[in-house]
């Protein structure tokens, strides 16, 4: 698609949505904001809470003030922060649990940093855990939606003959994750142009997008949906709840993550993950099918 001069000039101002305010297009026209060029630049805004990082440079906790670290552990509602090695004061951060509330940064800014990229989806749950002195702390993803989408489209057309069928199952979410999955279908994200279709029945699906804690009352329905999905199938757990139980954790009514109910192939952390992250998760899912 050729880019018009106007779209180019918008590029500089798009960050944090400024261009949207200025765009002169009318809502009733046919191109409106669905204009793809705009999408090259949808990035999270400056203050977006998308990723939390352990700051690596300062690995000596004692010098940072153990007190503040302890406060952070106490504050963290989903218990994402843990001490892995008391002697060396090793710290671990489970991004599958993190709900991105920002409390840890407030009490211990020298140890935790909230950023506006999003946490990359992973295939293994343990890859969501990072630790000081261990694996390198990962940066949030800043890849644009459009880039991911194009990559995905190519893969889908090679492997599935142009279309990937996705079935969404809510297994105990707060509906926040549903809102973001719904957003993928709005004319701005417009996921269908990458060949991804949301289907009404698991029998038509290649991928199950599962949200929520895996609530006790949904166990049977979730298992049945999984069984009704033809092989090969991939299950993507969307959101902190689906990855680990999120803020709800493990209760009499929840299962601390949907992988305690059905096998999960890809984990998309975030509370909720933004649409870009969910798309990235679908890309990992397609890779998984090979």
């Amino acid at each position: 698609m050729t880019r018009t001069g106007k779209a180019k000039s918008e590029k500089a101002t798009v960050i944090s949505g400024a261009s949207i305010e200025r765009s002169p297009r009318s809502i009733m026209g046919s191109r409106v904001e669905t204009d793809r060029n705009l999408l090259d630049h949808i990035r999270s805004s400056q203050g977006y809470r998308g990723n939390v990082r352990l700051l690596e440079e300062e690995s000596d906790l004692a010098s940072l003030g153990l007190e503040r670290y302890k406060r952070a552990v106490e504050m963290c509602a989903p218990k994402a922060i843990a001490t892995i090695d008391a002697a060396r004061l090793g710290v671990s951060l489970d991004k599958g649990k993190c709900i991105l509330c920002g409390r840890c940064q407030e009490v211990a800014p020298d140890l935790f940093k909230i950023e506006n990229g999003f946490v990359p989806p992973t295939r293994e749950k343990r890859d969501l855990v990072e630790s000081l002195g261990g694996r390198t702390a990962s940066e949030g993803v800043k890849k644009s939606y459009e880039e991911t989408g194009k990559e995905l489209k190519e893969k889908i057309s090679k492997m599935f003959g142009r279309s990937l069928a996705v079935r969404e199952v809510d297994a105990g979410s707060c509906n926040g994750c549903e809102i973001e999955i719904t957003a993928l279908n709005n004319p701005i994200y417009d996921i269908e142009r990458f060949g991804i279709h949301f289907v009404a029945s698991p029998r038509h699906a290649d991928v199950l997008l599962v949200t929520g804690v895996g609530s006790r009352n949904m166990e049977v329905a979730l298992r049945r949906t999984y069984e009704a999905t033809p092989n090969p199938k991939v299950v993507v757990a969307v959101g902190a709840c689906a990855c680990s139980g999120g803020i709800f954790g493990e209760t009499y009514a929840t299962n601390a993550g949907v992988d305690n109910v059905v096998p999960v192939d890809v984990y998309v952390p975030g509370c909720p993950p933004r649409p870009e992250a969910i798309l990235q998760g679908l890309l990992s899912a397609v890779d998984r099918i090979k």
Binding site: G17, S45, A183, P272
Partner: peptide, 18 residues
Amino acid sequence: NILKERMMQLNEQVTGSR
């Protein structure tokens, strides 16, 4: 839905969460 998405982007700019 375009209008809703605009509002959600505004939400993000104001509070850091969509």
